[in-house]
Amino acid sequence: MKKEQIEKIVHDDGIGMSLIVKTVARMMIAVILLFGFYIIIYGHLTPGGGFAGGVILAIAYTLMMLALSRKIALEKFSDFWASFWDNIGMLSFIVIGFIGLSVGYFLYNFLWHGEPFHLISAGIIPLANISIGIKVGACLYAIFIGLSIYGRVIVKEEEE
């Protein structure tokens, strides 16, 4: 879908919620995504981590799906890519574990620990946080896609 078509859908009254909600949602989605990535990346220094940040990422796309429309959300991030990133997060966490196995034991913290209270420190913990965050975010967004698409398709077929 081209950008003009998306603009046209956003300013159309028939799709999604009202114009005020759509405008505010378009501004807020980028901020929510940025906050989610901040929570994930600084997970080993401040409260947060992969689980909380992943759910924030999922809720940004859920807001897009609810406020704008299902069509725009699926254009931006379809169910194929959701399952793809889900598998990538899972696989990268296991790969980190197996690299540790080649050095010591499974999920061994093999990287240099670095100075405490710096962003690049704590060995594999930031990498594992990123993979867990991607995994949880894509997984919960995929659950919401499943609940919203597949149920509604069945109802429509029965009515017709």
């Binding site: 620990h113 913990i125 594992a128």
Partner: peptide, 18 residues
């Protein structure tokens, strides 16, 4: 032992990553 300032992150991703 882990280099992480957040002890909860240290427990879930280093001590008890299984």
């Amino acid at each position: 032992e882990t280099g992480a300032a957040n002890m909860v992150a240290a427990v879930i991703l280093d001590y008890r990553a299984y």
